[in-house]
Amino acid sequence: MTDSTDTADVTPKDTLGGAVIAVAGAAGPAGRAALKRLAEAGATVIGADADAERLAEAVDEARYAHGGATVVGDTVDLLDLQATRDWADRIEKDFGRVDGVVHLVGGWRGSASFAETDLADWDLLEKLLIRTVQHTSLAFEGALGRSERGRYLLISAAGASRPTAGNAAYAASKAAAEAWTLALGDAFRKAGGDAGPRQAAAILVVKALVHDAMRAERPNAKFAGFTDVKELAEAITGVWDKPAAEVNGTRLWLTEKP
Rank of each mutant, 00 (worst) to 15 (best):
M1Y: 04
S4D: 09
T5P: 11
D6R: 14
T7W: 05
V10R: 14
P12C: 07
P12L: 02
I21F: 01
A22F: 06
A24M: 11
G25Q: 00
G28H: 02
P29Y: 03
A30Q: 06
G31Q: 08
A33D: 08
K36N: 13
L38K: 13
A39T: 10
A39V: 11
E40T: 10
A41S: 14
G42Y: 05
A43R: 02
A43M: 12
A43W: 02
T44M: 11
V45Y: 00
R54D: 12
A56R: 08
E57W: 00
R63Q: 10
R63H: 10
Y64R: 15
H66I: 15
G68E: 03
A69W: 06
T70M: 12
T70Y: 00
V71S: 07
V72A: 09
V72E: 13
G73F: 05
T75N: 12
L78K: 06
Q82P: 09
A83G: 12
R85P: 09
R85I: 13
D86W: 09
W87E: 06
A88V: 03
R90T: 13
E92V: 13
K93M: 13
D94H: 06
V101A: 05
V102F: 13
V102L: 15
V102T: 08
L104I: 01
L104F: 06
G106D: 12
G107M: 03
W108A: 03
R109H: 05
R109L: 04
S113C: 07
F114H: 01
L119E: 10
L119A: 11
D121Y: 01
L125N: 01
L125H: 02
K127V: 00
I130D: 05
V133C: 04
Q134P: 02
Q134G: 11
A139P: 10
A139D: 05
L144M: 09
L144N: 00
L144G: 03
R146H: 11
R149A: 13
L154R: 01
I155W: 05
S156E: 00
S156A: 02
S156T: 08
A160V: 01
P163V: 00
P163D: 01
T164P: 04
A165S: 12
N167A: 12
A168F: 08
A169R: 00
A171R: 00
T181G: 03
L184C: 08
G185T: 10
A187Q: 12
K190P: 11
G192M: 05
P197S: 10
R198H: 15
Q199F: 02
A200W: 09
A201Q: 00
A202H: 07
L204M: 15
V205I: 08
V206T: 13
L209P: 03
A213Y: 02
M214W: 02
R215P: 09
P219T: 15
A221E: 15
K222Y: 00
K222L: 04
F226S: 14
L232F: 03
A235L: 12
I236C: 02
I236N: 02
T237L: 04
T237R: 15
K242R: 15
P243T: 07
L252E: 14
L252F: 10
L252R: 14
W253I: 09
E256N: 06
E256A: 15
K257H: 13
